[in-house]
Nucleic acid binder design. Structure first.
Lengths: 141, 141
DNA sequence: TATTGTTATACTCTATAACTATA
DNA sequence: TATAGTTATAGAGTATAACAATA
């Protein structure tokens, strides 16, 4: 463990803040909240069970219910019953949802406009540093 | 502008996520939301005007009113009228507020436990990379 | 008239607890 | 009985618009 300067901690804070703000703006471009955009990102091909989404998003199932309800009301996702277990509902993204998701991705300029300021070598450096910082001792958060 | 790989963007995402989650937890340790803790961090010696806080926190003034009201109800801040302009109210942190703020700072283990995984040289490297990424072309976000 | 802060209102995120349907 | 999802409810963050007090 090395001592960490306040200056570095502050830089990291600013970086994180800029990233968060950029994602918020990107989502807003498509009329979504960050939480809604994030949920769309977690929808793979044939649909995810509500419970799985709650686990992946690290939030309560009742929260997923509401997020999905709002997205469904706008036609961006659909609840499809699971054929093998009628308790389960799978959330699948619609064509309109894919379009909106693409909009968010394209509007999220942080990676290209910020990380893109680094040379290839610097990007590799950053990647190695982040890998060290995020050493897989804890799964998340 | 260099092309940015999805892998790096994902690493950055995970890093940001871990930082956010760690701060949420730290604030919760003191019974605060992240927004409340953040506001406490912006309170300097003699108190900040509500409007200045709104600018620094990049949010609406009415939002600051509510955040401050909740903190005031818990005795962590106080509204003191400005002697020179009676429209202005300055928000100052109380002794209890300082104590709580210290609790949050100590509970925020991300800098020491995560950035501390890097050697001094690596920390300097990271600092230089972040400085490049956050080149001061835009003020914030 | 312009500015500072508040109030009223509304929407979203989030969680807990109680509930329904299914297994 | 246990599980998947929903509903009811509540508190917090946030913004817009209307408002009061002061400059």
């Amino acid at each position: 463990m090395t001592e960490v300067t306040d200056a570095l901690a502050q830089q990291v804070w600013d970086f994180v803040y800029a990233h968060d703000a950029a994602y918020d703006r990107a989502a807003q471009t498509a009329g979504l909240s960050a939480a809604q955009a994030c949920l769309l990102e977690h929808l793979a091909g044939d649909g995810r069970a509500m419970g799985d989404l709650a686990e992946e998003l690290l939030c309560d199932a009742s929260n997923v219910t509401q997020l999905v309800s709002r997205l469904e009301a706008r036609g961006l996702v659909a609840r499809v019953p699971d054929p093998t277990d009628r308790r389960i509902k799978r959330v699948s993204i619609t064509t309109a949802g894919r379009r909106v998701r693409r909009t968010v991705r394209q509007a999220f300029e942080f990676p290209s406009e910020r990380l893109g300021l680094l040379t290839e070598q610097e990007q590799r450096q950053l990647s190695e540093l982040l890998a060290k910082v995020l050493a897989p001792d804890r799964p998340l958060g």
